[in-house]
């Protein structure tokens, strides 16, 4: 049973990671920095609870805010470049974050023992949940409450003008500027929101594993982050969720019995999936259930765009 709860926890934190890349991707930017924001959230929340005895909920929110602030600061210079240059710039940022945590030693004494990040050793004993007697199902529920809240917020955002603006910028930057949108503000806004979500994901992750170290937050994780929304499609937040279940559930766990062949099949299946559904598993046409509230439109809302 614990195995399944553990799996659900992985699905949950990875969904948050994927959603953080989803927001940025809506504006047409491929950010490889999400694993870095996730790492910042993990270390910040770990420090808040394990080193300073903070309650988990404020610690998670604080970690989200710290990540958001850093994402905002990084966004200004990074988003001046586009396409491959942005991929390179954000990758560099992610690696920089990883190297900082690799070198960071900052420990305080609590209950006679030293806790805190300890360089290459990582950050051990982020034991908020076991210390406070949380059962695994309770932890899992907490994670999924955060996932549900973030999904609901993004779902709602997508139905407001802000969502339409993100998609407009993602579709055509020249046209978006011509109608008076401030590209920098829109992109940095999306990056900040993405940083917040990644920070929440990372902080929950740190508490489920209790031990984090720099190596986890590398290029592979950054790739997963953008792979989820790309594979799932940008139509709605559910694409990302489906892609997490597909990759983490089916490809990573379901194919474990295949041993080394798994990675090969993994790559092949993603290629097949992207060829069958080039716009993602659930497509990229915005889901507009809200249209039903108004007078029904003459054409189906779920038509293929472009």
């Amino acid at each position: 049973m614990d195995f399944y709860f553990g799996l659900l926890q992985i699905f949950g934190v990875h969904t948050l990671l994927g959603l953080s890349a989803y927001v940025v991707l809506l504006t047409g930017q491929v950010s490889m920095a999400q694993a870095g924001f996730y790492a910042i959230g993990a270390y910040a929340a770990g420090a808040a609870t394990a080193m300073f005895g903070m309650h988990i909920i404020p610690a998670v929110l604080l970690a989200g805010l710290v990540s958001a602030a850093i994402a905002c600061a990084v966004g200004f210079p990074a988003l001046r470049v586009k396409g491959l240059m942005l991929v390179v710039a954000t990758l560099a940022f992610g690696e920089m974050v990883r190297m900082i945590f690799f070198n960071l030693t900052w420990q305080v004494e609590r209950d006679g023992a030293l806790v805190g990040p300890n360089g290459a050793e990582g950050f051990r004993a982020i034991r908020y949940f076991p210390e406070n007697g949380w059962e695994i199902w309770q932890v899992t529920t907490l994670i999924w409450i955060f996932v549900a809240l973030v999904m609901a917020a993004l779902w709602w955002m997508d139905r407001t003008r802000a969502g339409a603006v993100l998609r407009a910028v993602g579709h055509d930057e020249v046209a978006a500027q011509s109608i008076g949108l401030n590209l920098t503000a829109v992109k940095v806004g999306a990056m900040t929101a993405g940083g917040f979500i990644a920070g929440i994901g990372g902080s929950l992750y740190a508490h489920t594993v209790t031990h984090i170290e720099h190596g986890i937050f590398g290029v592979l994780l950054a790739t997963f982050a953008v792979a989820y929304p790309i594979l799932g499609g940008l139509g709605s937040v559910f694409g990302t969720l489906i892609a997490v279940l597909f990759i983490q559930g089916f490809l990573v766990e379901g194919l474990r019995f295949m041993g080394d062949w798994r990675s090969l099949l993994f790559g092949a299946l993603i290629v097949v999936a992207m060829n069958l559904r080039p716009k993602g598993l659930l497509g990229d046409t915005p889901l507009r259930l809200g249209g039903l509230r108004r007078k029904p439109s003459s054409t189906p809302a779920l038509q293929e765009a472009d």
């Binding site: 003008r161 339409a164 998609r167 407009a168 993602g170 579709h171 978006a176 008076g180 472009d306």
Partner: peptide, 21 residues
């Protein structure tokens, strides 16, 4: 634009909505 540049991924009304700047 001489070569039309709409937001093809948005609805007609949304194209106007995002332009209210």
């Amino acid at each position: 634009f001489q070569n039309i540049r709409l937001f093809g991924n948005l609805t007609v009304a949304e194209n106007l909505w995002v332009a209210q700047n």
